[in-house]
Design a protein around this nucleic acid. Structure first.
Length: 468
RNA sequence: GGCGCCGUAGCCAAGUGGUAAGGCAGGAGACUGCAAAUCUCUCACCGUCGGUUCGAUUCCGACCGGCGCCUCCA
């Protein structure tokens, strides 16, 4: 096994990575704010994290992944207030939808999905620690802020020390209560709207609610320890979210928070960042409606490196759909084959090595995909020769299983029994027509099948069919 | 203004100091009753201009073009 390497935002370099205890990678990934459906851009990040966890397992480690669900924040409260309901009524259905969408994209279950609202005591405790360390202060209204001036390392992740914040723009809209315009809220004093929507809790500083950054620090430390291996998220979270997490966590514990930070780049749509406010979002629901499989979207995402912007263009998904179809056809062929050749073994072994080398080199999924497709071409060539070596075939199957265990790109088989029965019946009718050399009738049957979205192919083993 | 990323074939997209993976689409051929699937062959001088070098798409600089962060936005 080659050494596993990963780009670390903290050092801005690709460097060797391994879990501190040598066995289990403890990783924290920022999850969705559940006030509306997560869009495909959000899922690009979650898919990158899925690839990450599967690759870590391939490297022989265990994975303990925690993904938080932000179920209390300004937008949720605003929405609940507008609907005259509580925040949980807003967040529950979207939490359910998130998991549905996630499964559609075959994103593996994390080991835990803690909710912010279920960890208020932990957050309050963290704030108390920060106050005790004198790095946090209470403002007149009862809100608690973190004083970045009192944390010397502030800015290490985003390289803020090298920045000049644009004067004017930001300062103007900051509350007067802060000592420094860049101080961030750990705890926000409750407003009427918070109380009305069930977004306020008791604390030593009166009623209030946690700041956004606080939840991640509190939950990460609760489930993964004060120091853990990996923290990942979208690139936009580097500043201020992750910077603030580091500040509040390390100021409290005096220890390194996350040993390595990884950030995925954005998904663009027609050249602009996919975002609600830009109005160019697409969701998983739309994917389903258009008959685009989760595997096609996985392919689209994995076809580009996670640290590069990726544009969702006009026929991006169509191209991926076709690519994934090829993988599916191959999977079926491999399953039905009866024997292989010596060259098939060589191809399998080469593919495994190329695949692992690619993924272990900072998750180079495009190159890993190339290894898969090269294997498909070579294996098809061997399968065409009609070998009889069963052990060789098993070897090829094992290689494919390993590869697809990470990429998970074989499209789902049709599970509709009624449709299947009908298709089988039509295929029998066509076979009969062909046997009496009535090709007109045979073609008519095929046209009938195509009209229902079924394509067929004749082979030595009989006629196969699949959905288009 | 500060910080960062990118510009490779019709489209998507890896990669390397010594003349460029893979996918989609396309072209020619094989197979097929016809198809489909599959196989074979085919399709790029890597944004522009300089510099370093025996040699650069790959290093440096400038320029042009695109994108992101600095706004609790993955």
């Amino acid at each position: 096994m080659p050494e596993f390497r990963l780009y670390n935002t903290l050092t801005r370099r690709v460097e060797p990575f391994a879990p501190a205890d040598g066995h289990t990678v403890r990783m924290y990934t920022c999850g969705p704010t559940v006030y509306n459906p997560a869009h495909l851009g959000n899922f690009r990040t979650f898919l990158f994290e899925d690839l990450m966890r599967r690759t870590l397992k391939l490297a022989g480690w265990g994975v303990e992944q925690i993904m938080n669900l932000t179920d209390v924040d300004d937008k949720i409260i605003r929405k609940a207030a507008a609907l005259g309901t509580t925040i949980s009524h807003v967040t529950e259905p979207f939490t359910e939808l998130f998991h549905q969408d996630r499964r559609y994209l075959r994103i593996e279950d994390a080991e835990g999905y803690p909710k912010a609202t279920a960890h208020i005591p932990e957050m309050v405790a963290l704030v108390e620690r920060l106050i005790a360390k004198n790095v946090a202060y209470e403002a007149e209204d009862g809100s608690i802020y973190f004083a970045i001036d009192r944390f010397p390392n502030y800015g290490q992740l985003s390289q803020l020390d090298k920045r000049e914040l644009r004067t004017g723009a930001r300062v103007a809209q900051d509350e007067y209560a802060k000592e420094n315009a860049q101080d961030f809220a750990l705890w926000k004093a409750a407003k009427d709207e918070d109380e009305a929507t069930g977004a306020a809790w008791d604390s030593p500083w009166g009623r209030g609610r946690p700041g956004w950054h606080l939840e991640c620090s509190a939950m990460a430390m609760k489930y993964l320890g004060e120091t853990f291996d990996l923290h990942a998220g979208g690139i936009d979270l580097i500043f201020p979210h992750h910077e603030d997490e580091i500040a509040q966590s390390e100021a409290a514990t005096g220890k390194t928070f996350a040993r390595c930070w990884c950030h995925g780049e954005f998904l663009l749509t027609d050249g602009a960042k996919m975002a609600k406010r830009v109005g160019n979002v697409a969701n998983v629901v739309e994917l389903r409606e258009q008959g685009i499989s989760g595997t096609a979207y996985r392919h689209f995402v994995f076809n580009a490196h996670y640290r590069k912007q990726l544009n969702l263009g006009e026929d991006s998904l169509e191209q991926s759909r076709a690519a994934v179809r090829r993988i599916g056809t191959f999977a079926k062929r491999l399953a039905e084959a009866t024997g292989g050749t010596e060259a098939l073994v060589a191809a399998a072994s080469k593919a495994e090595h190329a695949f692992i080398d690619a993924l272990f080199d900072d998750l180079n999924a495009p190159e890993a995909l190339a290894a898969l497709f090269t294997f498909i071409t070579e294996a098809n060539r061997e399968l065409d020769t009609g070998g009889t070596d069963v052990a060789a075939l098993d070897r090829a199957r094992a290689a494919f299983r390993m590869i697809d265990g990470v990429l998970d790109l074989v499209p789902e088989q049709e599970a509709d029994a009624e449709l299947a029965t009908w298709v089988e019946e039509r295929i029998e009718a066509r076979k009969a027509a062909r046997e009496r050399r009535d090709f007109g009738a045979a073609d008519a049957v095929r046209a009938e099948l195509v009209a229902r979205g079924i394509s067929i192919e004749d082979s030595a083993q009989g006629t196969r069919w699949k959905r288009l």
